[in-house]
Structures are given as structure tokens and as C-alpha cells.
């Protein structure tokens, strides 16, 4: 999983059925100093995350599909948690 920040919402009326009824979030992966790292990613929302939230995201089909409840569907990323805190040892 990765830690990312929700930076936007994607609006798309013409899309695959499995993406219906789900918020489509634009997330920016973060490094350990909470700085942007790499390109933004489109991920379906499974936990009602909102813009500005720091979140946990999966970037692999099976976990993404099961988190949004659509197995065997064209989904490869999903937000599966909202990060409250990261504590370093």
C-alpha cells in the first residue's frame, strides 16, 4: 500500500459499469516527509475519503476490486483507509 493525499475528484459519466456509484479520487503519492512523489493516480474510494485527506491506497487489482466490492472488474487502485498518524520508531 502507499500513503497519498487526495488532491481532487474525477467526474466521468461515460465509464465502465464497475466504476458507477463510487467516488473517483485523484490521489498524489507522498514520500515520508509528506512531499509529492511521482504522478497522480486515479483511485476508487472505498472509505468516503475527501480532498485533503491523507489516505492509504492499494495499487493492485485484486485488493482494489474487493475493497469496492466488484470482483473481476477493471479497477486497479482504491483508497482503503484514512491515515490519522504515522509514527516513526
Amino acid at each position: 500500500m502507499i500513503i497519498a493525499r487526495v488532491v481532487g475528484n474525477v467526474v466521468a459519466t461515460q465509464k465502465q459499469e464497475a466504476h458507477e456509484g463510487k467516488k473517483i479520487l485523484l490521489i498524489q503519492p507522498l514520500d515520508l516527509e509528506n512531499q509529492p512523489m511521482g504522478d497522480v493516480i486515479v483511485a476508487l474510494d472505498a472509505v468516503d475519503a475527501g480532498v485533503g485527506d491523507r489516505v492509504l491506497a492499494v495499487q493492485e487489482g485484486f485488493s482494489a476490486m474487493t475493497s469496492v466490492g466488484h470482483v473481476e472488474s477493471p479497477i486497479d487502485a482504491a483508497v482503503v483507509g484514512i491515515v490519522d498518524m504515522v509514527e516513526f520508531a
Binding site: V7, G8, N9, V10, V11, A12, T13, Q14, K15, Q16, H19, I24, L26, V51, P74
Partner: peptide, 9 residues
């Protein structure tokens, strides 16, 4: 898998 209408960023 989708055509984007808009992105609220």
C-alpha cells in the same frame, strides 16, 4: 475505462 468530464482539483 472512463472518459473524464472534469476534475475538481
Amino acid at each position: 475505462v472512463a472518459i473524464i468530464d472534469s476534475i475538481e482539483r
